[in-house]
Design a protein around this nucleic acid. Sequence first.
DNA 1: GCAAATTTCCTAAAACCTTTAGGCTTCTGT
DNA 2: ACAGAAGCCTAAAGGTTTTAGGAAATTTGC
Lengths: 206, 206
Amino acid sequence: MPRAGLSAERIIGEAAELADEVGFEQVTVSALARRFGVRVASLYSHLDGSHDLRTGIALLALEELTDRAATALAGRAGRAALLAFAEVYRDYARQHPGRYAASRYRLDPETAAASAGVRHARLLRAVLRGYDLTGDEQTHAVRLLGSVFHGYVSLELEGGFSHSAPDSERSWARIVEVLDGLLRNWPDPSHSDASRTEASQPEASQ
Amino acid sequence: MPRAGLSAERIIGEAAELADEVGFEQVTVSALARRFGVRVASLYSHLDGSHDLRTGIALLALEELTDRAATALAGRAGRAALLAFAEVYRDYARQHPGRYAASRYRLDPETAAASAGVRHARLLRAVLRGYDLTGDEQTHAVRLLGSVFHGYVSLELEGGFSHSAPDSERSWARIVEVLDGLLRNWPDPSHSDASRTEASQPEASQ
DNA sequence: GCAAATTTCCTAAAACCTTTAGGCTTCTGT
DNA sequence: ACAGAAGCCTAAAGGTTTTAGGAAATTTGC
């Protein structure tokens, strides 16, 4: 009988396809073997198991996403860079929901440190070079952007914004626009904020 | 032999505990049976299966979270309400990571419509009553807040912000503060934005 | 108070997924 | 051609899910 021609790369690639089709959670060594027309045990010559498979998809997704972001960011700065990054991020998640979910799979520290994830994080921080933010404030801003992007895309994929008044497309565009404005006019970390509304009652936090 | 005294409520409650201890993904009918010192099949008299179990945890979490939010929001408006909501949200997620993950479990539409989720969404929108936002802009703002809250908490639980320069606590506080400022000075949806920085190059979006 | 009805929990079993061990067969290089 | 390596296979054990049907404990009705 002829061989199936498996290899770690092909397997991870098919697994990524499968993830996009049926969801990252549903990616299973069994389903993958069926897809290759091969017995389950055969895959274990190329994989270290289920965790390894998921890690592989995650690394692939991080790399693809980061490459897209790098391409989109080349030659852009400030607002244009922010828009480009945001578009790439959301488009990737919508085109490849399974891979996107995989990119959030928890990697062990060494694997994560060697992954495209760090390059992706650097790119996001690079977007902020177009704005006037430094030190801790820049970090806060990076975390804000990361949270909005991930949070929005994640809620959207869960179906959170479907079938309601302004369509998700519009909200996304508007939010990114608003964030650009926020970054351009990033408020000083003055301790008594409360700049321009009715008097601030100093409420206890709990 | 004496009975274990199971009931749907007790089972869901234990399942929520288990989720917080080992993670929502790891909550399994088997593990739960072991915890009760009971055979697996015994739980099937009280549950419709695994999906039903997860749904139960999700509904419990949504209710707890919403109750906390409602309590925290009573008598507060504007900035104070935003701070309170944010604190409740993050605290709940940190105290009950498994339940929090459960609260993001995808429910079927009817179940979702009858869940505390809709009350929770109303509460978040109510927070915005303290700011001057209406119509679509209010919806965009609700989605922004939801994204930031969920995104931040989710990244934090994944370990994204640990062991790096400004601790997560500070970033959270600062981000909420910045959001308050943003909501108070929400920019007009003017079509040619680019209000106060260097001349805006009209870059194509792709 | 007790028998009947009901509920609770059990054993048994089938189906599926994961993982390891070890064997045959197909390639590859010399 | 043939020895070694690599690829895919059968076999098997262990775990989870779910259904079917039985036995014991509790509750209910008289």
